[in-house]
């Protein structure tokens, strides 16, 4: 099943391996600037091309996208599949490759597992992998999404 509907399904509707509609974004200095101002992370490695060219924190002269931007897009992938009000309860991300301005990132996600633990705390784990235009993984993300069970009268 491809999850692209804005309506959040019930936990019972999900199966391991269900995919989310992918999300693609271009990493331009303009979008890094917008994210930097919004997040208030104005580190010059993101926000100052002249400084980045001199400091070469990652061994190349370009500014790079924020790791938290990559993490946020992984969460956005889930919001777009399950609806803006979807109840994300945890996000864990590992950043595996810096993302210089000029990159194109694709985020793909799938249901890794479901947790029907009851007491209104049922959740699914979405694993989202972001890759760059070379196919290299830039971040690995796990998002916990609280979802209701299907009511008995709708079984």
């Amino acid at each position: 099943m491809i999850l692209g509907s804005p309506r959040a399904p019930f936990l019972d509707d999900l199966k391991t391996g269900d995919e989310l509609s992918e999300l693609v974004y271009d990493v331009t200095q303009e979008c890094v600037d917008a994210y930097g101002m919004a997040s208030l992370d104005l580190n010059p490695v993101h926000m100052d091309p002249q400084w980045a060219a001199r400091a070469q924190v990652f061994g190349f002269p370009e500014t790079v996208a924020h790791g938290m931007m990559s993490m946020s897009y992984a969460a956005s992938l889930v919001l777009r599949a399950f609806g803006a009000s979807a109840r994300i309860t945890a996000v864990e991300s590992t950043f595996t490759k810096p993302v210089p301005v000029g990159s194109t990132v694709t985020v793909r996600g799938e249901v890794r597992d479901t947790h029907p633990i009851g007491d209104g705390k049922d959740f699914a784990v979405i694993r989202a992998i972001a890759t760059d235009q070379h196919g290299d993984t830039i971040s690995v993300n796990e998002i916990h999404l609280q979802l209701p069970r299907r009511p008995a009268d709708q079984q």
Binding site: D41, A55, H66, G67, M68, A90, E92, T94, F95, P98
Partner: peptide
Amino acid sequence: TSIGFWLAAPGTPLSWTRTPGARNPFQRVV
């Protein structure tokens, strides 16, 4: 993220998050 950076003012124990040259390996938010 925005809340963290707003409050991680210079001189505070979280001010290291603003350090030029810092790199981000992994994060967890609940």
